Structures are given as structure tokens and as C-alpha cells.
Amino acid sequence: MAIAILTYHLWRENKALRKMSSEAEIVPHFETHPDGTGGLNLCLSNVGPGPAMDVTFSIISGEAEFHRYGVILDHSKRRSAITLVPSGGKFSFLFGIGYQLFNPKDGDAGEPLKPFQVEVAWRTSKDVNIVKKVHTLDVSQFRGLPGMMNMPYALQSALELKAMNQQLAALTKVLAPIVGFVDATKPENQSRQKAKGNPEPKEGGGGQ
């Protein structure tokens, strides 16, 4: 009887160890974007020893504030599940820009996006049951850190190019009426003479 009881307990422990060695654990969290200062990524990291299959995530609270802070992630779209996140792996995507996440469009500067909840779901390679867990994410953990309030270099360059294009467009409108005129001054003229040119001169001759 004692041997039977001991064998049963050993069997249960071995089963639990086998299950633990194949269990996945998906944790959502923030990390800074690797391509420049200011960007904030939302990551789904697998911190468990086993692979995670059919991984999904959804925002279940706090999404009403996203528009005020210019959050880039479109949480309203329905997406297919991520097929696989291996052990130690992660799936990350751009969530928002740091300086915008601390400056609402219609509020006080320095007021961060309020904490919100994310539900993640997945299953292990040997289990058909779906595991679901809810985590709370808070951007205020980056408050006051150097670089988080700066505009990313790529975005800054894009805005500068946009401003230059607008200035060139305005300059083109000012110069457009002038380009159609040619200098018709003769040596005997005491003042400069202008003649309206033909924007599409015919072959073999010039327009006046």
C-alpha cells in the first residue's frame, strides 16, 4: 500500500513537471522603440518555458482615452491570432509616441495616459484549452526619463519636409504669374521692357 501511494505521488509530480516544462506565459508590457527616441512599443513576451500558440490580445478598458493621446495602435480592428510566440520570444508593435502620451490634445501638458487593461489569450502546443489573463499597463513608469519626451528623428524630419513643401508651394503660386514674361528690352530703350511669353511655343519659333 505504501509503495502504491508513493508511486501515485511520484506520477503526479512527474506529470506536473512535464506540464510546467511545456507551459507558456504571455505577458504584455511596454518597451522603448529601438529606431529612435520617443517611440513606445507594446510587446507580447513569452516568459514561459514552452511555446505559445494562437496568441491574441484585446484592450478591455481605458481605450476611450486613446484618441486624446494620439495612440497609433488601432484597437478597434479584428485581427487573426498570432500563430506562434516561442519561449523567450516576443511580438512587438508601435503603440504611441512618448511626448504625445504625456500631452493630451485637450488637457494639461504632462498629464499621462491613464492606466488601461489588456487581456491576452493563448494555448500551449499540447493543450486545446485557451488560457486568458488580464494585465494593467501604465505609461507613467516612463515619466521624467531622458528621451521619452523628445520627438523621434524620423517624425521630426518628416514634419520639416512637409513644412518645406508647403513653403515651396506658396512660392510657386507667387512666381507663377511672373514666369510667363520674357525680357524684351532693346539697346535704345531707357527702361526695361517685358513681353508676355507663350508657355507652349510652336515648333520653329518663339512666343511673345
Rank of each mutant, 00 (worst) to 15 (best):
L168H: 04
S92F: 03
D183E: 13
N103F: 01
L94P: 00
A184W: 05
A109I: 09
N198F: 03
V85Q: 01
V85P: 01
V55R: 01
K173C: 08
V174L: 13
V182T: 12
G70D: 06
L94S: 06
F142K: 04
I178S: 10
K194V: 11
G50M: 06
V85M: 05
Q190Y: 07
A169S: 15
I72R: 04
I130N: 03
D127C: 09
V134I: 15
A163I: 08
L73S: 03
Q156W: 12
T83D: 15
F142C: 07
G110L: 09
E65G: 03
I59H: 00
R68T: 11
Q117P: 01
L145K: 15
R78P: 00
H75G: 02
V71N: 00
K90E: 15
N165V: 11
Y69V: 09
P152Q: 10
D127N: 09
K90F: 03
A169D: 14
Q100Y: 04
S125D: 11
V55S: 01
K173P: 00
V134A: 05
K105T: 14
H75A: 12
H67R: 13
V118L: 00
P86H: 05
G180K: 15
G50L: 05
V131S: 07
G107R: 09
P112E: 06
A109C: 10
S125H: 14
G107T: 13
Q166M: 14
I60H: 02
F91I: 09
Q100T: 09
R123N: 04
F116M: 02
P51G: 10
K132P: 00
R143I: 08
V179H: 10
I82K: 02
M53D: 06
E63G: 04
I130L: 07
R79Q: 11
S87E: 05
G70A: 08
A109F: 12
K114L: 07
V179D: 15
K196D: 02
P146R: 06
I178G: 04
K126C: 06
K90P: 01
K105R: 09
P51A: 15
L171A: 09
L94D: 00
S157D: 15
F181L: 10
G98L: 02
L175T: 14
V128S: 12
V71Q: 02
P112F: 05
F95E: 02
K114N: 07
F91K: 06
L101Q: 03
M164G: 02
T83H: 08
A158R: 12
S58W: 01
G50K: 03
Y99Q: 14
S76I: 10
A121G: 04
A64R: 13
L175Q: 14
L161K: 12
L145Y: 07
G147M: 14
Q100K: 11
Q166R: 13
F142I: 08
L175G: 04
V120L: 02
S92L: 03
N165C: 11
A154S: 10
P187T: 13
A163E: 10
K77L: 13
I60M: 03
P152Y: 04
W122S: 01
L145D: 10
K162I: 08
A170N: 12
I178F: 11
T56Q: 06
N165F: 08
S125C: 12
L155E: 11
R68E: 15
S58D: 09
F91R: 10
L101I: 06
